[in-house]
Design a protein around this nucleic acid. Structure first.
Lengths: 417, 417
DNA sequence: ACACTTTGTTCGCCTACCGAACAAAGTTCC
DNA sequence: GGAACTTTGTTCGGTAGGCGAACAAAGTGT
């Protein structure tokens, strides 16, 4: 079974000695849209002759193809090389607390098929595993013939993931699963590597590759949901901390005299703006003021977001309160880590400026150095599909940084005839 | 003028392609004490023949020498290779708010000579620069003949440092310096590269190389002084954030109803345990209770530390309060970053368990995941010399990771006869 | 004394990469 | 429209960094 860290042949010495030229060439072509052999030669700082030879090898793999001539730069027109985004597909699974979602993507993060279904994940491991397989089969059938070119499966789980044994799940967060994910079944069924990581980390990864974090070196993604989780992207890499549980921003205390939290701390962020806290607060506010859209029917975080979008006064007051409390926590984050940006995802993200403007105000009032206050605070661009997309991106990023995962590249590195 | 980032020939392509074998060999020999050519071959995963040739080159530089035979492992006895720690010396300067300190070290972080002098650094740029040169001359003379083998100068400043222009100083923190450090004069006088970084970062670097952070991948160093600063070491590298001001832990709010801070925030950590806050709190406590060692004479953080060491009840009560407030901030840090360890330096560090025990208690009560609570909290092992030692270490680490900084290595990389 | 290990050197080989040269295909300027 | 110049992409010999095999030197274990 494959772990998230590519196990094969990655010795400490190899890491320091750098990656083979062929890998770098593939990655460079992926990043640029339509680069010539001469461009590649300049990019990798190799001679045009070697660039030419590298391209020859890559053409054989099918991952790269020639795609017509580009504009002349004063001489012969270059032959553009295009990464073949459709050479493979990737399955990205989002296993939340109460739903399962599956995205089938190409190698450019485009979602070719999508399925989402509500399910009591926490209490029903067997049913969840069956559902995951059913959804995977569905999307693979929908995009005809894609099963044969499946590159890998990425899975986002709403629980900490052990770096050394990513197929185990936290027994405290998901007791009914008893630590065993059973994801090996997916690996056996589809005969491809399986990668697992925490959902906030993968939300961050997706935003960094395709969303609000493109081109941003250091940022933190905060997922607002029942719980509050964060994923850090430092220098293009997910930062996981010592034991892979970095990002528990929900349990930062923002008021030592606040309510007791399950974690033992007082005044955790989650006791102010977690899903349950929001519902309680809404109920309390409705007791004072009637005439809210929230008055009829059960109150859920989703309905609060809906109501705020419709400019319901109670819901908007709640959003302002969320903005304030979150602002205190983010101010601390900025002072401590000085990221370039903070990206908000999950519920509330659709509110955009209604959330961001009061949030920014709190942050600016509460940060010292001007450059810290200049950090951008944005909302997710990917919405609810972001987590599953991030799971697929985990596979893609692994493959691009160590292309032996691509079936066509294995012949080249091992020993060619 | 050299910046902290080695400017010479470091193109993006070079970085990805990895460092030359010769550099890796030098670093490997530095790290091990007495490794053979065969060991090196295994470590770098190259053949014994190449390892042998690499060693031949390194012997020529004078940075490595053969140091007798090692114990047999069942065959011929290996010839041990020893890094020549005395081949060069390094100057490490610590420019605090009210003092200047200089350490002359060898290539193993041993302090060969040390000078420290109080000086109103903030208000007197000219005098500070003259003092720095005087102290440098003194320590270079004391270790006779070392001036000729000076490798470089590292400087720790108690102000944020711009990554792109490390010779500029923050105008807000040190207005009298008007942004100009004038450190170019040191470079001209001693004809060696000068490296500059923030003092908390360099404290972290020193602890990571020589002190309480040896072998710890991810940790945060917190310097308690007039202000509270932190430096993060992630994976052996100083983490600086987007604009080089990561680590402003002093301005994390731990109580939104607390006192107003200069930064605009309320209830910042410094308003509880910064140098001035400590003095005020001590004065207030003395009004209630007499008979303290602190009653006679001016109250300073240093005297509070002294009194606590002598088990003065007022001072010890203050320490417990510091431990509690710091614990709240550290709990947040652990939840957010999940480091392996937190290392405390500056004043109070000498108190060890008197500080650590109540601190750990607060942290454990306030962190969710068990592995987060398992993070080690320690005090600095290097004491007041740590910052200057870190400045010297900045030079050493740069030289080891890009050995062209060593005079003897330049002939080899360029083009040998 | 013998077999077996480990170290370190030598030497020929292989291959990834380079530079020079060249053809093909454009552009610019007169 | 043609000459001069550019840029691209290929070919081809050269080079040097690293490898493996072989070997001598110096150990250990039985």
């Amino acid at each position: 079974m494959e772990s998230r860290t590519p196990a094969q042949g990655s010795s400490p010495a190899d890491e320091a000695r750098g990656r083979p030229l062929l890998d770098l060439a593939l990655e460079a072509i992926w990043h640029s849209e339509g680069m010539s052999r001469a461009d590649l030669s300049r990019r990798l700082e190799v001679s045009r002759s070697t660039a030419s030879e590298l391209v020859g090898d890559l053409l054989d793999t099918g991952l790269v193809a020639e795609g017509g001539d580009g504009p002349s730069r004063g001489g012969r027109r270059p032959i553009l090389l295009k990464f073949q985004d459709r050479a493979h597909v990737i399955l990205g699974l989002d296993m939340g607390a109460t739903h399962v979602a599956v995205a089938l993507t190409d190698l450019r993060g485009r979602i070719l098929a999508w399925r989402e279904e509500a399910h009591p994940v926490r209490s029903d491991p067997e049913g969840t595993r069956a559902l995951m397989i059913r959804l995977c089969d569905t999307v693979l059938e929908e995009v005809h013939g894609s099963a044969s070119s499946l590159l890998g499966i990425g899975i986002a789980v709403a629980s900490p993931v052990d770096h050394l044994d990513p197929l185990r799940l936290s027994e405290t967060v998901l007791p009914a699963w008893r630590g065993r994910s059973g994801f090996e079944a997916l690996q056996k069924r589809y005969r491809v590597p399986v990668f697992v990581d925490n959902d906030a980390n993968l939300g961050a990864l997706a935003e960094g590759w395709w969303g609000a974090g493109r081109g941003v070196k250091h940022f933190t993604f905060i997922k607002l949901a029942t719980g509050i989780g964060a994923g850090h992207m430092f220098g293009g890499q997910i930062y996981r901390g010592a034991t892979n549980v970095a990002g528990e921003i929900g349990h930062i205390s923002i008021d030592p005299h606040g309510d007791q939290c399950l974690c033992g701390n007082r005044g955790c962020l989650v006791t102010f703006i977690g899903g349950e806290a929001l519902v309680h607060r809404a109920q309390a506010m409705l007791a004072d003021e009637a005439g809210s859209l929230l008055a009829d029917g059960p109150i859920t975080p989703g309905r609060i977001e809906e109501a705020a979008l419709l400019r319901d006064p109670v819901a908007m007051q709640l959003v302002r309160e969320v903005a304030h409390h979150l602002g205190v926590a983010i101010a601390g984050l900025l002072n401590l880590l000085n990221p370039e940006a903070v990206i908000l995802g999950g519920s509330m993200a659709r509110l955009k400026d209604d959330l961001l403007i009061p949030l920014r105000e709190t942050v600016v009032r509460r940060t010292l150095v001007s450059s810290v206050a200049a950090a951008e605070i944005r909302v997710s661009e990917l919405g609810p599909q972001g987590i599953a997309l991030g799971a697929a991106t985990l596979v893609l990023s692994s493959a691009l940084s160590s292309p032996t995962l691509f079936p066509g590249m294995q012949n080249l590195v091992a020993g060619r005839p």
